[in-house]
Design a protein around this nucleic acid. Structure first.
Lengths: 169, 169
DNA sequence: GTTCCTGCAAAAGATTTGCAGTGAC
DNA sequence: GTCACTGCAAATCTTTTGCAGGAAC
């Protein structure tokens, strides 16, 4: 088991070790996404590119509001509507994964099927979100998917509990 | 662009085999829940009881709107606010599980840790939600949880894809 | 009788949509 | 030059909150 810690308040900020081993990936996620959008007939506007680049850097999922304010902090302002529009386009072509882990907020992150693929731990008390990976779990999921009556496109696992900081406090 | 809304009402209808083997459960979930609420100091109002009974009958998760309209159809009207308040109380004492599975809608279902425990399949196209169980997956989850740095309270697995009806159509 | 539960209506957010100007091709 | 992309403001929808009357204890 390989858990990445996050110092931050809500989302995780730790760079992922996996990001280094890109041998099997021809290009970064943002380039793949830009290509996918181009193939689907979209033009390359400024807002869209800024959002793609931001998402590509994130180790874990962000909300639409976080995406907008983070871009704003970098002097690359983008309207909220554009954030939602780009999220919808990306999800449509399967490059984005929604992560819905409570309080009605939706988070978004690049859908990575190879290195970078992970699941989430959520603290019930502080709401912190952390990524984790577990190879045994992946094997079990693959086996389970084989016997399911649908053509599986993706899976998502969320584990909830009191994180170490909260349960000791 | 005219985006077709997923049928929403389309929750799962399959009766669960597990519902029959209740030998280890002393009482129904709604009775346990009523007891839990009483222990936590809540009184037994009419709206609360109606909601508990409805939830107990459901094979899978419902949205707040569905809960309200289903009760309405049974001539047991309850305000939307009460639905949300009861959901919050039940979640607080761990008897209710939120199922957040897309399009910003939140669904709720009884949290069953023994028989009745299940996970979800979601069809990307028609939005249908179906329960499934897999013992190998449960074992893998238990093993994974043992090594996690948080006191685990629950887990949730969502598998997405095109269901058999949609992929053949 | 006191305190909690409910429904109603208003409020608060998040997300979506209509429209007009600007930018990509 | 055309059509897509973007921002703005308004609209929509879900969920939360304030308050007053009624119910549980």
């Amino acid at each position: 088991m390989d858990v990445q810690r996050s110092p931050g308040v809500d989302a995780c900020h730790t760079p992922r070790i996996d990001d280094v081993e890109l041998s099997s990936q021809p290009s970064s996620w943002s380039e793949q996404a830009a290509q996918g959008l181009a193939d689907a007939g979209y033009r390359r506007g400024g807002a869209r590119r800024a959002i793609l680049e931001l998402l590509d850097e994130q180790p874990c999922a962000l909300t639409a509001v976080e995406i907008q304010s983070e871009l704003c902090a970098r002097n690359r302002e983008v309207s909220r509507a554009s954030v939602y529009r780009v999220m919808e386009e990306l999800e449509e072509i399967g490059l984005l994964q929604r992560v819905e882990v409570g309080r009605g907020l939706v988070r978004y992150e690049p859908a990575r099927h190879g290195p970078g693929h992970h699941h989430h731990l959520v603290c019930d008390r502080c709401g912190r979100l952390e990524p984790f990976t577990d190879e045994g779990l992946e094997r079990a999921i693959r086996r389970a998917c084989e016997r399911l009556p649908l053509r599986v496109s993706e899976h998502e696992i969320v584990i909830r509990g009191a994180c170490s900081a909260c349960s000791s406090a």
